[in-house]
Nucleic acid binder design. Structure first.
Lengths: 342, 342
DNA sequence: GTGAAAGCGCTAACAC
DNA sequence: GTGTTAGCGCTTTCAC
């Protein structure tokens, strides 16, 4: 550091504690603690002297000591598969907004799509004694579940639904999404379909139920292309290419595991001069911001991610206040948005 | 919680401490501490008994107590303007990867683009006694700088460059980016230009230097459209619309503050049947994953965000080991990637 | 309204 | 190698 450590008051702030502040204000350390946690328990005069002392010393309370003494860290652990995937980020954002408004800070890690990797992170996070835990998805190792249950804190699993949640669960049924996509395709009159998916378990679950239902209703599934763990425009383009070149796809609807993939399909179709939606229809998933503004606008499955994050936060907050949330399992649902691409 | 709290060993794990584990293993609490922090300091036989006791009890070390005692939290505070903006997320990702490999966990918050909001978050984070601080950008309030300096921990400011960093600074000169974009435009033969920008200070700084340089070299700036704080495909489309309708833009290059904006411009141009790049040329910023796969492929400014995050992490780690990093100011540079859109 | 005492569960000396 | 003694800087409880 280039500058000597000085605070607004012009004093070194190396190790300022409540005791220091108290001494300066002519009160004990406990009173300083009270002043900060509940000003109404301290006389206005004292309060003012303490405030002055804080300003002079540049005192910053030590939340680590506070957490140890109170056994409440005001920290929420959150594990998301990917930091750069907008879908997870937007859920986190609304979750974290509400939590922060209530005085909680986020301990965030990227856990990928493998339960084994997640387990290690859960252990690491648990050692920080978070007050609650946010997990993406419902598939965890047995040990992970045990640790989480043993920690005896609110746990919320988002973005999926199960009959056996660890604690709270807010999401939707991916299987139902696949079914709805297939129903949509059939009802819109498409007799042929193909799929382009990322390789994560949820994407594949949606795809499989799409294929099952579409076939069951008499449609023809021409082919499925999937990529290991990465949705991208590049893979979307490659997906359509493979569907055409390797599976002989010539016309029909392409169901994608994400809007990013769908965008790639759209671009590749345009490049190949295939008419959308007449020759190639495209259905995405996620309804990301850009979906409505592509040309042609992308039909997709909307999941209200902000509502999901908010709902998860509300349930956790309820538990944190020792009340029970309205429901430990919230089906946030989804909606197919038909636009110009299909 | 639906299930009673039980660990793998089948015992309640309510309040298992090192003392509990020690008692079970027939050693003192300190020996357990040593076994966990440095197994070589403990005899193999003891080690094994301790390991057994840990398995039986399901002991999870309390990092809060550890942090208080050792004055090292193994926590890194990170503030990013937006969780959902891929540009910031991808820097964070590589930063966090390297930090986690070294045993550090992330305390992450979204701070928006206003220094005043950032200041509050800095105070909140500092109370958790992080071992280091990651900030996006170089503009902070005076009080924020004081607090950070007073905390006497490594601080890294990323995504910009200044002569007066708080501590470490890894980024590039946004002004130079604007200049380079203007030089590129002129040298590619464009005599007219327009800009479409988000409203944050860095985007505007790039834009202003673009306009200055482009004009200085004899180009004509037809108009500038900016949106308060939000880059999106929608705003990109609207940006081109306004440039044409309100500023009479008819042909030339459009310099955008992000690839997302540029994508919107591209789509709107396509919709209006304006030839790209012949009538409308587009230059983005960021070189996001999708940029190379748009049609036409997007020319843009590449900043190696992974290198940036990694470089920031390396510098912080060096400081954390009480060594000084090679340099406290790293110019990571940038590169204009010419593709089909200009 | 304020203070004294007793921890929270660890790590950091220092003995042996 | 292992144990003992002191804290780390707060919150909690109980007195006054």
């Amino acid at each position: 550091m280039n500058v000597p450590a000085r605070t607004s008051g012009g004093r070194p702030s190396g190790r300022v504690t409540m005791a220091t502040v108290g001494k300066l204000a002519g009160v004990s350390q406990v009173t300083v603690s009270r002043a900060l946690s509940d000003p109404s328990k301290v006389s206005p005069a004292t309060m003012q002297r303490i405030q002055q002392a804080i300003d002079i010393t540049g005192f910053v309370p030590n939340a680590v000591a506070g957490a140890l003494a109170s056994r409440r860290s005001k920290l929420i652990s959150a594990l998301v598969p990917s930091l750069t995937n907008n879908v997870y980020a937007s859920m986190m954002q609304s979750f974290s907004d509400l939590m922060r408004d209530n005085g909680y800070e986020l301990l965030l890690s990227e856990c990928g799509f493998l339960p084994e990797a997640e387990e290690k992170l859960i252990a690491a996070h648990l050692s920080r004694r978070p007050d609650a835990f946010y997990l993406t998805g419902i598939h965890h190792t047995a040990r992970a579940r045990q640790m989480l249950i043993g920690a005896d804190i609110p746990v919320v699993e988002v973005w999926d639904l199960t009959d056996a949640p660890i604690d709270i669960c807010v999401g939707f049924h991916h299987r139902e999404v696949g079914w709805a996509m297939a129903d949509f395709a059939k009802e819109a009159g498409y007799s042929h379909a193909g799929t382009v998916s990322a390789g994560d378990e949820r994407a594949l679950r949606r795809r499989d139920s799409f294929v099952d239902r579409f076939s069951a209703r008499g449609g023809t599934c021409v082919g499925n292309v999937s990529f290991s763990y990465s949705a991208s425009v590049a893979n979307g383009r490659l997906g359509l290419t493979r569907l055409i070149d390797e599976h002989g796809f010539s016309s029909g609807l392409i169901a994608c595991s994400s809007d990013l993939m769908a965008q790639g399909v759209l671009i590749e179709a345009q490049k190949r001069n295939l008419a959308v939606p007449d020759q190639i229809a495209v259905l995405g998933f996620g309804d990301q911001d850009f979906a409505a503004f592509l040309e042609p606008a992308l039909s997709t499955v909307r999941v209200d991610r902000r509502a999901l994050g908010t709902s998860a936060a509300q349930a956790v907050l309820k538990r944190l206040q020792h009340a029970s949330p309205e429901s430990a399992r919230v089906d946030i649902g989804f909606e197919i948005i038909r636009r110009a691409s299909s």
